[in-house]
Design a protein around this nucleic acid. Sequence first.
DNA 1: GCATATCATAGGCCGTGTCTATGATGGACC
DNA 2: GGTCCATCATAGACACGGCCTATGATATGC
Lengths: 294, 294
Amino acid sequence: MMDRYLLRYFLAVIDAGNFSRAAAQCNVSQPTLSVGIAKLERQAGQPLFHRTNRRVELTAAGARFATHARRIEAEFALAEHVVREAVPRTTLRLGVLVTIPAGWIETFVTRLGDTPGRLPIEIVEGRERDLIEQLSRGRIDVALTLVRAESDRFAAEPLFEEGYALALPASHPLAGRHTIAAGELADNVMIVRRQCELLSDTSRHFTARGVRPFFAARTLSDERAIGYVRSGLGVTVMPACFRDPGIVRPRLADFAFTRTIGLLYGAHVDRTALRGGATLTALADEVRAARRGG
Amino acid sequence: MMDRYLLRYFLAVIDAGNFSRAAAQCNVSQPTLSVGIAKLERQAGQPLFHRTNRRVELTAAGARFATHARRIEAEFALAEHVVREAVPRTTLRLGVLVTIPAGWIETFVTRLGDTPGRLPIEIVEGRERDLIEQLSRGRIDVALTLVRAESDRFAAEPLFEEGYALALPASHPLAGRHTIAAGELADNVMIVRRQCELLSDTSRHFTARGVRPFFAARTLSDERAIGYVRSGLGVTVMPACFRDPGIVRPRLADFAFTRTIGLLYGAHVDRTALRGGATLTALADEVRAARRGG
DNA sequence: GCATATCATAGGCCGTGTCTATGATGGACC
DNA sequence: GGTCCATCATAGACACGGCCTATGATATGC
């Protein structure tokens, strides 16, 4: 496995023009450097230098390799430098729970263009556990996701709390009702939102009440689920925040689950610095506004 | 000095999520990986992971470092790959002797745009010895420079031979003459072309004939030298190929030096492949045409 | 409170990168 | 043509350090 010190030998030979000077430059003896280059060539599978007496010249393979070797060394130097100095992040990596309406994020991103002091943004979608994992890996900086009382692993900023509700087509016989019991939906075809954080609870709720529906669709997208509902394919249960002209959202009786949506901050980020930039403030405002007005 | 294996440990921890799984992934024991990370952190000057029991999370420094670590690993993989496979060069790196008229190269580059099968080109200027060094280092592929009989280090393709001549302003008293002896220029102010491959020979030629002129300018650019001559600042000696409306080029008596201009091919390049592409053919044609017509 | 998971520490083994010493080869120079 | 000097390659010894097993410290979960 090609090691770094071999690259330094290699580059030194290129720069110095011969093995002896290269060895001196690397603070090793000439034989050491010689076996090093030999080892590198063995690993490369072919000679990297043409040894004529009096001087060495790169072979074609050596010339190709040199470009990458230099880049690697430069990147090492940069890495060693950057790990010490606190360079501010240039992009905000935002995780977004899949069960948050896509429209909110679209609006947020659209309006972000006008926000002064905004950061370039990078969005990563995922389920709750995906986002938590990405957050702990340092792959994202902030997650717009569920905030749970028991999750104290990350600094949390709750934005709103909401319940879950049925989603029926506007033409559904029960569309005018305010609250509907599970039993009343016994004959209804249903749609499974596979990404839902409450999937098993919902399933349990119905089976416990003797309702074992046929599932007309299993989807990972809430937008498609809404489309199916609107078209009359079936009904489903979704977070209350999802609204659409073609569907109604009556309560499901005795289904008291709620969720709190908010921001979770990765352990590696400077939270105040992120809030200082207007980006996250804009996101929080947008989410709250969408929740109220949606 | 941060070694490659430490980077692999580091990245494995990020990917695996904890030290034990990372160690397994690297085929080392957990303690080995543990001391490896500790070593890396000591070299980095600060912790890269937040160790809470149950899991590890990247620190801010760790997150910054991770980007570069991944890039380095990717580049290593690429280097190992590229050194084996013969990927054709995508650019032709051309060295050009500084004492070759800039206009030739400009015309060549301009016309190259129309040449089918051309390679993107990258030009490196330098004196003869600079180009030879770059060529042997594999930094350039071909050099348009002096071809000497005794230089058999590189494959050579001569294009033309020429002498050297005086350069006088068109208004100079001796401008009409075909040949001028050094002694006739005793009172003339001269211009030193510092980059000239024949500088010392020229100087010797004059001093040997008792001419010790005042030097009005020392320049590294032939175009500026011509400008000085044209403006009447002084006279100089240049390769015969330099022409300009404002100057005349009489011979310098008993100055029999000539030079052969041609292409030198780096040891690392596949010469036939390069000629196969139309780029070098175009260059050779252009140089010969400029020489004839110039 | 025991079982289980985590990462850290200690001490010894051994691979390998390093050294010095020497050889092989090919100009340069008289 | 023989000597000198430069080049890179090879051989054998040393020792640093990366690796192991064994054990400890600490927190979580049933």
